[in-house]
């Protein structure tokens, strides 16, 4: 309770600010309407009208919540208007990119730890690759995969998500695989362990805490990558596409509902990864 109270207070503060912002931004429209019909409105009349517009500049929280609820529970799950459906499409893309990013990151980290020449040549470029804004590449990855005949719309999204997510895995795995100290390595050496055995019995288990620590960052990055992959590309499915539709057709409520659906998805994924981490740590006998 002592931990929840400050968080709740700040949340309340944000909601209050949000309502104030909604009144402030949406009131222009109300005044405008009143002026057109030649009447004047008092502040007490304005406030209720800013809460119920169909195309508000900033929808107040309860309108967003209602739209979110309509999208989640008001439709059949398979409907094109269901946020569950679009969320699932985004989730699938995220998971593909997540898996691809982990495989790529772990593979590169293994090579870098094993071969010094790999470290010297690949590591600087891996860092530079992250300073390239991936969104610059996103539209192109999509056109190119279209042209070489990749029908599956998931693949370009997964590539973008993987590009954002491989780097944190790479960095923490390199650190983790190097975590065993010289004494432990020497011990395995006296046992006559081969490189592969050292890797499997010492380096890999030692890297696990680092690996899991990176996963939370990675899953969020993969989700951002997937949504960015859906944004500029005329995709028709997924939360990113939903935001784009809301923006292009002037339906802010759709946009905000998709945004919050994405936020909820992100929160769920982070919690899930945290749970897996705790289970894995418990199995490896780490102190809780």
């Amino acid at each position: 309770m002592t931990r929840a109270l400050p968080v709740l207070t700040v949340l309340m503060l944000i909601v209050a600010l949000w309502y104030a912002g909604a009144v402030w931004l949406n009131s222009t429209w109300v005044y405008d309407q009143a002026q057109r019909v030649g009447t004047s409105v008092t502040l007490a009349e304005v406030i209720p009208q800013t809460m119920t517009q169909t195309r508000p500049l900033l929808p107040p929280p309860h309108q967003v919540a209602a739209e979110l609820w309509k999208g989640v529970a008001g439709q059949k799950v398979t409907s094109k208007r269901s946020l569950v459906y679009h969320g699932y499409v985004t989730f699938r893309g995220t998971m593909m990119g997540f898996a691809l990013g982990i495989v790529l990151g772990v593979g590169l980290a293994m090579a870098i730890v094993r071969y010094r020449v790999m470290e010297l040549s690949v590591m600087p470029w891996a860092i530079i690759s992250q300073t390239i804004p991936i969104v610059a590449l996103a539209p192109m990855i999509l056109t190119v995969s279209n042209q070489i005949g990749v029908e599956n719309r998931e693949i370009p999204k997964a590539i973008i998500a993987a590009y954002l997510s491989f780097f944190p895995v790479l960095v923490s795995m390199v650190k983790g695989l190097r975590a065993p100290d010289a004494m432990q390595l020497d011990l395995l050496c006296t046992y006559g362990a081969s490189d592969a055995q050292t890797f499997r019995k010492l380096r890999l288990p030692a890297s696990m805490p680092y690996f899991f620590a990176s996963l939370k960052v990675v899953v969020a990055a993969a989700l951002i990558g997937t949504i960015v992959g859906e944004l500029p590309t005329g995709a028709i499915e997924g939360l990113g596409a939903r935001m784009l539709i809301g923006s292009q057709f002037g339906e802010p409520l759709i946009m905000w509902a998709a945004l919050f659906a994405a936020a909820i998805l992100a929160g769920g994924l982070i919690l899930l990864v945290g749970l897996i981490e705790r289970l894995a740590r418990a199995r490896m006998g780490a102190p809780a």
Binding site: L5, P6, V7, V10, L259, A263
Partner: peptide
């Protein structure tokens, strides 16, 4: 008090796909 409240929220918001706010 504010710090304790803001840190978890800030951490959470940092992980959100904020780019989605771009059209707004």
């Amino acid at each position: 008090f504010l710090q304790k409240g803001l840190l978890p929220i800030g951490n959470f918001v940092s992980a959100l796909p904020i780019v989605g706010l771009a059209p707004v």
